[in-house]
Amino acid sequence: MTHSTPPPPTPSPLLSEFSNDPEMAELIESFTSELPERVQAILAAVGEGRVSDLKRLSHQLKGAAGGYGFPTLGEAAGRVEDGLRATADPTTALKAIAEDVRALVDLCTRASAGKS
């Protein structure tokens, strides 16, 4: 008796608003290729409770992502930053933004330059 396991769902890629702009192609490519590194840095900061590093990382991503044509990613980063600024106690702050971090990481993994 065999039963087949369904393949894991492939997340739908998130494309840059400027994916048709030749002047931006190279920049988007380098931004998306560096995203895994940023995700690692964000997760490490969360894991080690480094709130100020997390604030800086999300702040930079908030400012940059929109420029590369990923406004939803920038907004997600903004929610993480705002959440951290709203609470003074680091432990409470990290707990409060856990869901926002998950959403941000999800968007980062889906962001694609459009060509593989």
Binding site: E23, M24, L27, S30, F31, Q60, G63, A64, G67, Y68
Partner: peptide, 15 residues
């Protein structure tokens, strides 16, 4: 600006 992304983007956008 402390963000390297901003410099990269401005360079492309203000070419």
């Amino acid at each position: 600006d402390d963000s390297a992304d901003v410099h990269r983007l401005l360079k492309a956008r203000l070419k």
